[in-house]
Design a protein around this nucleic acid. Sequence first.
DNA 1: TCTGGGGTCCTAGGACCC
DNA 2: TCTGGGGTCCTAGGACCC
Length: 428
Amino acid sequence: MVFEKGDKIFILVDCNNFYASCERVFNPALRGKPVVVLSNNDGCIVARSAEAKTLGLDMAAPVFKNRDLIGRHGIKVYSSNYVLYGDMSRRVMAILSRLAPEIEVYSIDEAFLSAVGMSARQLPDFGRYIHRAVQQQTGLTVSVGIAPTKTLAKVANHFAKRHEQHGGVLCLTDPAMIRDYLSRMPLAKIWGIGRRKARFFERQRIHNGLQLTAASDRWIKKYLTVMTLRTVWELRGISCIPLETVPAHKKGIGSSRSFGRDVSRLAEMEEAVAAYTARCAEKLRQQGLTAGHIQVFIATDAFKDGPYYENAAGNGISPPTAATPLLTARATDLLKSVFRPGLLYKRAGVMLLDLLPQVQVQADLFEHVYQNSRSQRLMETIDRYNRRTNSGKLMWAAEGMGKPWYMRQAHKSRRFTTRWDELAVAYA
DNA sequence: TCTGGGGTCCTAGGACCC
DNA sequence: TCTGGGGTCCTAGGACCC
């Protein structure tokens, strides 16, 4: 049988331990050693090499609770280096785009591919070819899961990653084989079923993927959502989630961050909010969008004893804009309306909503074009400079200079692939 | 001392209308 | 004695994903 347009086959390619592997590609001294990468602010563990997993470090575990383990085993610790990971991701996606006719970049480290014009017998070979190509060209190892629905491709990928005998590639097209693997698939690991729903199913004596496929549609719709029903159909082999080769337009663009230390002064808070607004506005302009609504939120430390405060305020912006100074002025006003003196704040964020393409705004609001063009040219110039020099060197004075509230990043590696002065050095 | 950030989607419930 | 019901829009909150 040959898969043609209309026949569904999905190939999920997922990088193993992506962030930790990126660190290792440029630092051979890390081969075979346990490596972990931390979240922003050096708070939690967000990526672990195979060795680190074996030592018992959990995903999303706070670092401070694992200091002992990290010290005892000489585990190498890195702050997140998104410039490096983003660039490695682009390289992987470029390779995959050349290999398959259609690609959906699903996240920084995974993509779904289609397999049009290929026979069922060729699929495993194709999977192995992808595996080899990415390995040779980037030094990163991927797992490949192949199946008739996206959710089953995720299941295949799950086993390809964990069981060495598959060599990183598992093709699930045979119904008996699918049932066999589903019977060994823990519910909480199924795409779309989180911990919460898994617990619900356990109480109903449903313990694995195969049992879930046997549940009745009526029952699922009654107690859960249509989303869960879709997941169940996908597990039964009926494809409900199509390949999205064109990225959907964003509904909101946000930037939020925990502080390196508590912030209680309004002046410092204003700097942080200005900095987050500038970041959002930059992302906005990169995508050729403007925002018609802005939201600001601030929060105290949720982990501390005592009351937790989270306050948000939002407002419409007319006409919609992508100009940093305008957005910052609105954000500052909103901040003042929710800020309470005397509280120790730990986190703040800015969210831009009601996104509208820039061209549309100009067409609709003809009379504003002239007066906006100056600020638009300024924005373009700043963005171009920062992009070209790959730094955020041009910033707004409102962001402040010292940034005493800035997040901790004590273990950052170099930007090996995007900065000449940070290239890897090979010694003869 | 120390616990991420950026998204999506669905549902419930209130307001409002006819 | 008697107190509708259906549609729509909005928002807040929750679950989930990576």
